[in-house]
Design a protein around this nucleic acid. Structure first.
Lengths: 345, 345
DNA sequence: TTCGTCGCCTGAACCGGTTCAAATGGACTG
DNA sequence: CAGTCCATTTGAACCGGTTCAGGCGACGAA
């Protein structure tokens, strides 16, 4: 009874009557292997059902064949964000076919973000990382570079970066939301923004202010941490103030839904008394009442573009900066004519 | 100028004046190393800032120091489920301190689930996996066993399993929801369930029927795939039928929120005309209007318990079956006295 | 014929750990 | 003082690939 042992490259070599080295060359499509030998080797490999040991390959080539995503601090904020899952699905779409694997690390209060990156790098667990939720003056870029990892950033950083980036002009999404509201006659409009320290939070806020200025509107911006709790709180503040807005543009759907709850609790009708828009176009937005007007981004496409950029970088390509298709505004029931507007209502 | 090269075990050995082998013993807390040598070796290691190469360790020990989670088919259903993020955070809590890393693989339509497991196993990418969303007669258990991986199941499988399991009695959560509704005078109650093929979906449905029977209620159950879309659809069917329920117990918050939207759209007041309960107690449930009565489970604790069980199994422990604390019902505004009930209404 | 070139192939070193059999040496026994 | 035992230590093999320097034979040119 022969012991069940998975075949090694030596078995393949013996079986094909050549040396280990030649098998390695043949399997990696290197030149210098006669087509006759190559054929024999491939046959032997498939006869034996041989797959190269990733571990051995890893040791001798110094690569991990894995990429990482470090999820930032607050699990609640992340948990809420369906964006993340779609992003990961997109990354996996690309990684899976190229034999990479995705390592997900969570930075916890007990293990700060930098430590988490350092851990991945020290153990050479990954060849590269995807930097999400880019921040203003993001330290991670220098850190990751120092750690000798490749990377790709989601969005273009505001600091010097040697890495590729893949961006979505979410500003365009916000602009179309503001334009939509302006067309409906709203003048006093608010934006419940993400944290200014996060680049997309800030970028959306900037876009909001710029678009409002262009349309001659009267804007307010309130910063939050993207959570439903702060979204609700911001809404409460905005609506209980004196000069209250007739429309609120939220920086994500999650806060918009929470904000909707607050408005209803205050006895306001949406969209009659207040129009609201979300961002992300999550599933849920379609089913709540009133359904949510929202900016739709394609997180999965973003993920695959980022994954591809990272793989390119790993194979030595020069950094690139890609821009994805502009997000589009999906108009549903939560936006309507401004209360005082003469138009249709 | 000396080249920057990370120190290897040989450097440490030289520095401490001993052999490679002894360094390995000392670092792995093996007996048979004099305390004097051990001290010298540890000093040398810290002097040089040496960390063992995971790759080399991996090659010689045959372990990966990584565990995997395979996310099933539909990204949308998953994306919606904050449960997942919390679970992962819980797993990571445990893995991080034990030097494990979490590999997340997504099964896509193009790459079926079994293939995904096989891929992880063939490449020996992981030492073990966490099986989530256990299904009736779950094939994955046999598959994973055949692939030579360790595993832990979330919930107790209905088939022979050599693996540890960590369960939550979500039935208890459903029972308390039904009891709550019965106490409020509801008689005609419905359950919008998950797919019967998923064990927790079925278990909750069973618990619902049992609890309804106990309380002498008149129950209906509608199966869905856990998505907001099907949750909405099920609600529509339930509410537009003749003998409509006065309360609906949803198998997750996501569907409950969608169901709330449908009810409102039909002109029903919640909780005056209809009471609803969710499951998971997601963040959002607190902020919508009316706020959602929901069953709170501690997914993060579940994750850490599962992580620990998996690590135990990897170090050779016999399989165990743990039960976590019972979920609790968080009562909010979405449940109230039955319409026809005389109580407080 | 002789040399150089080129394509193909081999053997061995190497990546950086773990592990095992055997060597060392000191203490203890008889 | 030899023999035994034990704790400690060493050197080498091993995990399974990659890679490099060099060998070999065929072929073309001088």
């Amino acid at each position: 009874m022969t012991v069940q042992r998975r075949p090694t490259i030596a078995d393949v070599a013996r079986h094909a009557g050549v040396s280990k080295g030649l098998v390695s060359y043949a399997l990696n499509d290197r030149p210098g292997v006669s087509s006759d030998s190559r054929k024999r080797i491939l046959e032997a490999a498939s006869d034996l059902g041989w797959t190269p040991s990733l571990r051995a390959r890893s040791l001798s080539t110094g690569r991990s064949f894995a990429c990482g995503v470090v999820v930032g601090r607050s699990p609640d904020v992340i948990a809420a964000d369906p964006f993340f899952h779609s992003l990961i699905a997109g990354l996996e779409d690309v990684f899976a076919v190229s034999g990479q694997v995705l390592v997900l690390a969570v930075a916890t209060p007990g293990r700060k973000e930098a430590e988490t990156y350092r851990g991945l790098a020290d153990d050479r667990r990954v060849d590269g990382v995807v930097l999400t939720d880019l921040r203003a003056g993001d330290q991670r870029i220098a850190l990751v570079q120092r750690l000798g990892l490749q990377a790709v950033t989601l969005g273009r950083p505001d600091v010097e970066s040697p890495f590729s980036s893949v961006s979505v002009d979410d500003g365009a999404g916000i602009r179309s939301a503001v334009a939509h509201l302006a067309a409906l006659g709203h003048r006093r409009v608010a934006h419940v923004a993400g944290p200014p320290s996060m680049m997309h939070g800030q970028r959306r806020a900037d876009a909001f202010l710029a678009a409002a200025a262009d349309a001659g509107l009267d804007p307010v911006v309130v910063a939050t941490d993207f959570s439903a709790a702060e979204g609700a709180e911001a809404t409460q503040r905005l609506l209980s103030g004196g000069d209250r807005p007739t429309a609120i543009v939220y920086s994500n759907d999650h806060m918009a839904v929470a904000g909707l709850g607050v408005a209803q609790r205050l006895g306001l009708r949406v969209p009659d008394d207040l129009s609201i828009t979300g961002f992300d176009d999550t599933d849920l937005g379609r089913y709540i009442h009133p359904s949510l007007t929202s900016v739709a981004t394609d997180a999965r496409a973003w993920g695959s573009a980022a994954g591809r950029a990272l793989l390119d970088a790993l194979s030595g390509a020069a950094p690139t900066h890609a821009d994805l298709a502009e997000p589009t505004l999906i108009i549903r029931e939560s936006t309507g004519p401004a209360p005082s507007s003469p138009r249709r209502g």
